[in-house]
Design a protein around this nucleic acid. Structure first.
Length: 771
DNA sequence: AAGAAGTGGCTTTTT
DNA sequence: GCCACTTCTT
């Protein structure tokens, strides 16, 4: 196959580039992914480079998956072991440490390849514990702020000693102490935070010459996607990996650099030619995505930035509609306008995809409410992810403790959850003891039991907890992941605790745990071990579960990077919201906001509509505040804009009185792993309230559904359900069994639920009954 | 020790 | 308006 066919001259040049550094400046919609995948295929076929010698790195799992798939289909089918390595920075680094990280123990105390990963919730818990030991509270500095302060220092290679010696005041040196303790405690728990995941491979490769040479020998060709968003650590890693061959190709667009606040350094891309002498530079400036008007509007906007390499995108496509601008009275009105206009657009142009983009996640709520009023299906990308749910984190914490009992943060989370009589006093004592003796909480528990340090009642409770963990640990290696999770759920009493309270809330939690079990079964089938399962849970991002098929997607502009939609709305273009107050002060921050706007605008293929509100409430109860239209609106040339008015007026339902109920429903539906807001749901929602939906969708109407049963039926031993039979699920309602696999306790059912799609359920745990 | 009920304090973006 | 944290009650 000829991988050069159908490419424009610049794309062709990039694909044909073989040796030496390459900087590919790829504008929005210029066929970047196509070029990367074709280049990989070309290297393999035309230059006979073995697949595994090529490393391609992206930022999100989603981008990696897509790239992998496209490479595979270009090269024809299953490549097996000869496949190029396509990975995200973080999973590449985790794999490196799990496989070849043993020698890191030489430079990181207590490190083993069994390390755990601390996400930001874990970081906050750790900081709480440190604050407590230092007698501080959140007034000193909010945990989250402290977290990002530490992260900022780490990614800029400033140690706690560096920070301490440059501290200007008492607060500065206090912070340095917190930072220092934080680092100590991570090491003690054999845990790595997200910064460490990148930093430690760099330190290891610098430290271990053999390993560095081994990796250099292997990866002859290295490619980095979204280079504008790399931070200094990632830059170091890239340099180390490409040191021997210097066959480093980076792809990026300085106009789309939007992660400066997370440590991304735009200088990496601006200075590439300086850092890698003899680099070839190729610009991809032809845009294949958007209409001329959209492209010109976005280009004119971003031209207001100074930190650019400068390029001007062009397109052969038609001018298209002008950019719509709508001024709403308030946020409710804005949301209704968007929902209303979506109805009109989709009525004219059926089956198309629409995105509503916004700056901050909380903006989604009102838009959701408006979409529900129209019975329109939508998905929300981001916000809370499945793996952030409390019950999921609880059970995974059990798993983490089994793998690595030194992980005190996970231990702290589960020690009295479900409640087993180890209260605050006892926990504080254990923590105190661990701190004083420089040991983990798990070791402290052992020692304190040996020394008889607990009062009788607490002793019994702690002893029972220790036995539970010991018993589970003894057998964990014999079980598959799903079996381990089941044992945890049963023996810890966690399932019983949820079953005891028969509220919709606990039902929903049980449902989420069921999803987790399904995921575990799938992982076990793929042959994954517990560690891989946990790594996956730590590294999946919210945007990774984006469902391309949804008609309407709601997401932040950050999450929209790399995606495209025929119709795009950008909501909330107001000074203070977008650009955000926190960025307005600094020139750099403003430029990044502008780039973010550029990213949002260039997602649109056919039509782009910008909206803002004259008044907006800061929060629910507070009075609406006057808003100034965003400066970005003015930066779009007048000739490219048109002012839009409201279409139909929608005032049949009192939205305020619905808000609470809607939110509850939204919450429940968000965490099923599948966030599609089904037609059945919406109908049910309105029927329950005796309100007719504004407009019924043309799609086949479902039979009206009864309210979901709340009470869980007593678990009687029942005859197994076979394929074809109808069942009722506590959360998904009526469904038909399509497939049955396995038998007895392990029986797995594939069930089709109208409105929810296919679900894999484990019969024993699903709580289903005959319909 | 564990739940219920009340109150302060703050909201950017996320691998 | 929401969440995390505190105080109150048993």
């Amino acid at each position: 196959m000829d991988f050069l066919e159908g490419l424009n001259p610049q794309q062709k040049a990039a694909v044909e580039h073989v040796e030496g550094p390459l900087l590919l400046l790829a504008g929005a919609g210029s066929g970047k992914t196509r070029v990367i995948t074709h280049r990989i295929a070309h290297l393999v076929e035309a230059h006979h480079v073995p697949g595994p010698c090529i490393l391609a790195v992206t930022f999100t799992n989603k981008a990696a998956d897509e790239m992998r798939q496209r490479v595979h289909s270009l090269l024809g089918g299953d490549l097996g072991r000869s496949s190029p390595m396509v990975s995200t920075f973080h999973s590449f680094c985790v794999r490196l440490l799990r496989r070849d990280g043993a020698n890191l123990a030489q430079i990181r105390p207590n490190f083993t390849k069994n390390f755990t990963i601390y996400d930001d919730d874990d970081q906050v818990s750790l900081l709480k514990s440190i604050y407590k030991a230092l007698g501080l509270d959140e007034k000193f500095m909010p945990y989250r702020a402290c977290c990002s302060w530490i992260s900022h220092n780490k990614s800029h290679k400033l140690s706690s000693q560096d920070v301490y010696s440059s501290a200007k005041d008492h607060k500065g040196s206090r912070l340095a102490v917190i930072y220092d303790r934080y680092e100590q405690r991570l090491r003690q728990a054999n845990a790595l935070d997200f910064d460490d995941l990148l930093l430690e491979p760099v330190r290891l490769l610098q430290h271990d010459q053999d390993l560095r040479e081994q990796y250099n020998r292997r990866f002859e060709f290295v490619m980095i996607d979204e280079y504008q968003d790399t931070n200094r650590t990632q830059y170091d890693l890239i340099r180390l990996l490409s040191d021997a061959h210097k066959n480093i190709a980076v792809v990026g667009d300085e106009d789309q650099s939007i992660y400066g606040w997370r440590g991304a350094d735009i200088r990496n891309i601006l200075d590439f030619e300086h850092d890698f002498p003899n680099a070839s530079v190729i610009r991809l400036e032809q845009n294949y995505r958007s209409t001329k008007n959209i492209l010109e509007a976005a280009s004119a906007l971003v031209a207001n930035n100074k930190e650019r390499k400068g390029k001007w995108l062009w397109t052969e496509s038609a001018a298209g509609s002008r950019i719509g601008v709508y001024e709403a009275v308030d946020a409710e009105n804005e949301a209704l306008f968007i929902a209303d206009t979506i109805e009109n657009l989709l009525a004219m142009d059926r089956g198309q995809r629409v995105a509503v983009l916004y700056r901050t996640n909380f903006q989604s709520r009102q838009i959701e409410e408006a979409l529900r009023r129209y019975g329109r299906k939508y998905i929300v990308v981001g916000g809370f992810s499945f793996y952030q749910r409390a019950e999921i984190k609880d059970i995974l914490s059990y798993l983490k403790v089994l793998v690595s009992p030194e992980d005190s943060i996970s231990l702290l989370r589960i020690v009295n959850n479900p409640a087993r009589g180890i209260g605050k006093t006892t926990t504080d004592e254990i923590e105190q003891f661990a701190l004083e003796n420089q040991m983990s909480m798990w070791s402290a528990i052992g020692r304190m039991l040996d020394e008889g340090a607990f009062p009788p009642r607490a002793e019994a409770a702690v002893q029972a907890f220790r036995n539970l963990i010991d018993e589970l640990s003894a057998e964990v290696n014999k079980w598959t992941i799903d079996e381990t999770l089941r044992q945890i759920l049963d023996r810890s009493g966690y399932r019983r605790m949820l079953q005891a309270v028969e509220t919709p809330e606990s039902e929903s939690r049980l449902g989420n745990l069921e999803e987790l079990l399904n995921a575990a079964v799938d992982a076990a089938e793929r042959g994954e071990g517990v560690t891989e399962f946990l790594d996956h849970a730590a590294l999946v991002a919210d945007s990774d579960n984006l469902d391309e098929r949804a008609e309407v997607s709601l997401l932040t502009m950050h999450n929209a990077k790399g995606l495209e939609f025929p119709y795009v709305f950008i909501a909330g273009l107001e000074e203070g919201l977008f650009p955000h107050t926190r960025s307005i002060e600094s020139g750099e921050g403003m430029e990044e906001e502008r780039r973010l706007c550029y990213v949002g605008m260039t997602r649109a293929e056919k039509r782009l509509i910008l909206t803002y509100a004259k008044f907006r409430r800061k929060f629910g109860g507070s009075p609406p505040e006057r808003c100034i239209p965003s400066r970005f609106l003015k930066e779009v040339p007048a000739a490219l804009k048109e002012t839009l008015g409201r279409g139909m007026d929608v005032t049949q339902v009192d939205l305020y009185s619905e808000q609470h109920a809607v939110r509850e429903t939204v919450k429940k539906n968000l965490y099923t792993g599948q966030t599609v807001n089904s037609v059945e749901n919406i109908n049910q929602f309105f029927t329950e309230r005796g309100i007719a939906p504004v407009k019924l969708p043309a799609a086949p109407l479902p039979k009206p559904q009864q309210a979901v049963a709340v009470a869980r039926p007593p678990q009687v031993r029942k005859k197994p359900f076979g394929a074809g039979s109808m069942i009722r699920h506590p959360k998904y309602g009526r469904g038909q069994i399509l497939k049955r696999e396995g038998d007895g306790d392990d029986a797995k059912l594939t069930v089709s639920f109208p409105g929810y799609g296919l679900k894999k359920l484990i019969e024993k745990y699903a709580g289903i009954k005959e319909e």
